[in-house]
Design a protein around this nucleic acid. Structure first.
Lengths: 173, 173
DNA sequence: ATCTCCTATGCGACTTGTCTACTAGTCTCG
DNA sequence: CGAGACTAGTAGACAAGTCGCATAGGAGAT
């Protein structure tokens, strides 16, 4: 459901093939959503079925043919409707917290290792986001500002995570 | 996969029926994982199939029969193995950030509404967590300390979320 | 000439997660 | 006495997400 909306949002920025979409999911969009290739192609087919997008086969000059997808008026309406619809709270799901919750049977060294490994991953995540932001030009229009805003959210979360980790690593000596 | 481990973790604390597990997923565990009844019962069946847990039908004195599940030695080994295994970074998935990212076509009032509604939800979340922590006795042993630690993580995240929201609400006047 | 990598699309099988509805007993309140 | 809430489990359909495999053209390297 949400994936379909996100794809509509991306198609609203520019016409794209499934491959282009996959690249967005792996880069620009990555800090708040990701998707598998198979899933993207299936969703695209459904969007076309539902009349929210159209396909056009573009013969590739120096590459295989692309199926370029374009958002339709109905697609734009659906996107708008999603943006203004009620927020559905999504359930929290955190595999690391799950481990930590049940880590009572680990000894001190094992627990410290668990925390250290998670900290390294969190640090990496933060660095990656900072790198992206550093290479992003200052926002020109509103869309660009919103894009940076979502990045900043990722940054804020990553920093909070690191702070919390430092705090509890001390606490659980 | 992770759900199975979490259920093992819960069974390691005490023998339980599917119903008991469901209550945990809706309360104690809720801030980092949730699960549907059907999913819980299916997973329990698989755990028994795999020899990681056993079932025993307990005739209900003043209620329907319960199927009490008990973790086995192999189950405990599997749980331990999970706790010490490599962390697999789980993909970020945030429907709110997705909306925000594509909210360029909304007008100022609509955008403000979107932010305000999310802020209210985040506030509610924070209040709920604080209520739980307030009603939790100070930790006696290590297990209890870890449980509170995961709660604190939820709290830290919720606070970071609110701070970020306040910041950007000003910014995106 | 072959090998490997990159672009590009798709299928099929599978797992996970959600939703609805049904059965069935107990307890409480009005 | 009946309505509704709580306990307890089951069945079936379906949506979402993952993994592996196949195909196919072009580019560059060995």
């Amino acid at each position: 459901m949400i994936l379909a909306r996100i794809i509509l949002g991306l198609l609203d920025l520019a016409p794209m093939s499934g491959y282009d979409l996959k690249r967005h999911f792996d880069t620009t969009i990555n800090h708040f959503w990701s998707a598998d290739r198979a899933q993207i192609y299936r969703t695209l087919a459904r969007l076309v079925d539902d009349g929210l997008a159209t396909v056009e086969t573009v013969a590739g000059a120096k590459a295989p043919d692309r199926h370029e997808h374009r958002i339709t008026e109905r697609g734009r309406a659906a996107l708008r409707e999603w943006l203004t619809s009620e927020l559905d709270r999504q359930p929290e799901r955190d595999a690391f917290l799950a481990r930590l919750f049940f880590a009572g049977s680990l000894d001190d060294a094992e627990l410290a290792g668990l925390l250290a490994r998670h900290r390294a991953a969190a640090r990496e995540q933060l660095d990656a986001l900072e790198a992206i932001r550093a290479s992003t030009p200052p926002p020109a229009d509103r869309r660009a500002r919103l894009r940076i805003t979502t990045l900043n959210c990722g940054l804020a979360r990553a920093r909070a995570e690191l702070d919390w980790l430092d705090e509890i690593t001390e606490e659980l000596t």
